[in-house]
Computed example of a mutant assay.
Amino acid sequence: MFENEALRLLVTVAESGSFTQAAVRLNYTQSAVSRRIAALEQQAGGPLFDRLPRGVRLNPAGRTLHRHATDVLDRLSRAERELAVLHAGQGGLLHVGAFATANISLVPTALRALRDARSEVEVVAAEGPTDVLMRRLADGALDLAVVSDYPSGLPPADGVTTTVLCEDELRVALPRGHRLAGAGAFGLEELRDEAWLQSAYGDRPTMLADACARAGFSPRKVIRIAEWTGKFGYVAAGLGVALVPSLAARAVPDTLVLCRLTDPALRRTLHVALPEAPIPAALELGELLRTTVDRGF
């Protein structure tokens, strides 16, 4: 409704207490300031200043608009500064997304390296499933995301490019007292009588269902638990077992053990996803993620 220049004029007149002084500051004529303020008052629905024998002062309506005007102008000024450093590759905001288990160690390790190298970059972190992260990238709400093809592949997203980061093996979490806890790698058919902890809902195919089918059985029972802490609690209580990415190994409590499975298909691929025109800080973080993977984070 109100133009930025009109709001800037309002603030300048309020600060100087005079149309004449505001005109001098802004290199306008006094009559031009009077006309612009009159037009602004018409937009606002009434007077904004009390006209005094010497100068002007804000009336209640003017003080209300002045409060909002200073807030808007401050936000615009900060946006200009952030854009300037962003386009210069020197800093600014970096919106980063990742799925839950990538945030256990991989992404935080890379972000710590970015902070050490580029303290002027301010990271805004977001967590969510891959399909949501890809949509947010396509919408311009994220600058980079770490995504996965588990459980049903990478969804397409206009204007988003993906490159492979690494592969992540899926293991099975068992309570320490389980008969297979010390067995090393074994086939999934050894767990045909177990209940399974899963977070996926609906009828979409899952890697677990496909792997069980290859092993010649269907899960006896599936318990739907969304959060990893809940899954670990159920496994520790002996109520079921769960597939756990090796990426999440550092978060597994001591009451559980992670065992390898012999099915080579039980793995997922992680990707770095970027918009078509990534900002410099996003490209730098992408390289740091690859370095983090190479070092085993």
Rank of each mutant, 00 (worst) to 15 (best):
R204Y: 08
L165S: 04
R135C: 08
A251C: 07
Y28E: 06
G153S: 11
S148W: 01
H66G: 01
Q42Y: 05
P53L: 08
T255L: 05
K231C: 07
E190Q: 13
P175L: 04
I223N: 03
R81I: 12
M134G: 02
A69P: 02
E127M: 13
P155F: 05
T291N: 10
E82Q: 14
R51G: 00
V257K: 01
R8S: 15
A39D: 14
V235H: 04
P275I: 09
R295E: 15
G159E: 11
R260A: 13
P60R: 11
F217Q: 08
E5D: 15
L261A: 05
Y201Q: 13
A100F: 10
P175S: 07
A102G: 09
R63A: 13
S31G: 10
P129I: 09
C259V: 04
W196H: 02
G55D: 07
L188Q: 02
P108G: 13
M207A: 12
A44M: 05
H87I: 08
L73V: 08
A226T: 10
Y150F: 14
F19G: 01
D158E: 15
F232Q: 03
T161Y: 00
A61W: 03
V96H: 06
S31H: 10
R78Y: 07
P245R: 00
L76D: 10
L65E: 01
L83G: 14
R81A: 14
P205D: 08
L52S: 04
S105N: 12
Q43I: 10
